[in-house]
Simulated assay, not measured.
Amino acid sequence: MGYQYVLFYKPYNVLSQFSPGNTPTAPAARLTLKDFIPMPGIYPVGRLDRDSEGLMLLTNHGQVQHRLSDPQFAHPRTYWVQVEHVPRPSALAQLRQGVTIKGYRTRPCQVNLLQAVPSLPPRHPPIRHRQRIPTAWLEMTLHEGKNRQVRRMTAAVGHPTLRLVRIAIAHLTLDHLQPGQWRLVTPSERQRLLQI
């Protein structure tokens, strides 16, 4: 069959795995990748937490999977992050320089305060709106992917994450996908993947 490369817009509350989502703490079946992608033999390159949304790449090409997942290759991953309160320049500078979370110092990253709310499909269920607590949106580009790293970074500078959407992995983007939709990569996207 050859190598397959699939881009998927993971919705909120979906597990980044194909196996059943039953656990002792969540006995009811949870939605998984199998509920959306009917293609056997492909696996996610990295993960998104159940409460995160956005772009995932799935493939059966082990070398591509390794090179995009291994921190030594430092491929960028870009997120739109809704946080509590509007971060001061000093908090943004801390994020850019790296923060210490769980005894680990994060690598420097790119962080920009977005001037407008990004155009995203509504999340189900929506973020709880609190009248007295303003929110802001950040665009963060990391070159590593520790467990729940973005959430832990924003919390470390006093701005808990409310919504997290990955919009890009290297040169791959959400483009016109909607939550729950997937597509095969284009020939030009595939060519660039093979050069990674």
Rank of each mutant, 00 (worst) to 15 (best):
R107M: 13
E144Q: 09
L92G: 06
A26R: 14
Q181R: 08
L120K: 07
R128G: 06
V117C: 08
V64L: 09
R50C: 05
R77S: 02
M140Q: 09
T100G: 00
W182M: 01
R105I: 12
L55D: 07
P76C: 03
S19T: 15
G103L: 04
A168D: 12
L68A: 05
R96I: 02
P179Q: 08
Q97G: 04
Y104A: 09
V83L: 02
R105M: 11
T161N: 09
G158M: 07
T161H: 13
Q97Y: 03
N112E: 15
L55V: 09
Y9L: 00
L55K: 05
F73A: 07
H124V: 10
L95H: 03
P179N: 06
H61A: 10
H176C: 06
L184Y: 12
P44F: 01
R190A: 07
P76F: 00
P71V: 00
M153F: 01
R88W: 15
N147L: 11
R152Y: 12
S90L: 11
A156V: 08
N60R: 14
D49W: 10
E144G: 12
R151H: 12
Q97R: 13
Q115S: 08
P126W: 12
Y104W: 14
V45R: 01
L184G: 05
A74P: 13
E139A: 03
C109I: 06
E189W: 04
Q110Y: 15
S90R: 14
Q82S: 02
A116G: 13
P11Y: 05
P20H: 13
L31C: 08
M56Q: 07
A93C: 04
G62P: 13
Q178K: 14
E139T: 10
R50L: 04
M140Y: 11
I133V: 13
Y79F: 11
N60C: 04
T25E: 12
A91I: 01
A168R: 02
G145P: 11
R88S: 11
A28M: 11
K146F: 14
R166L: 04
Y104K: 15
G2P: 13
Q63H: 08
T59A: 00
L193F: 10
Q191P: 11
D35R: 00
M140H: 09
N60Q: 12
T161V: 10
R47I: 05
A170W: 15
P24L: 04
R132S: 14
R163L: 10
P11T: 00
I127Q: 04
P87V: 00
D49A: 03
Y79P: 00
A116L: 14
V81Q: 03
H159P: 09
N147M: 05
A91F: 06
Q181G: 03
K102F: 05
K10S: 00
H124T: 14
Y3M: 11
W80M: 01
G180R: 06
V14Y: 14
V99A: 02
Y3F: 14
N60I: 02
T186C: 03
K102A: 09
A93N: 10
V165G: 06
H143V: 08
Y9Q: 03
R107D: 15
R105N: 14
Q82D: 13
C109W: 11
A155L: 15
A136F: 01
V99L: 04
K102P: 09
R47E: 08
A93E: 13
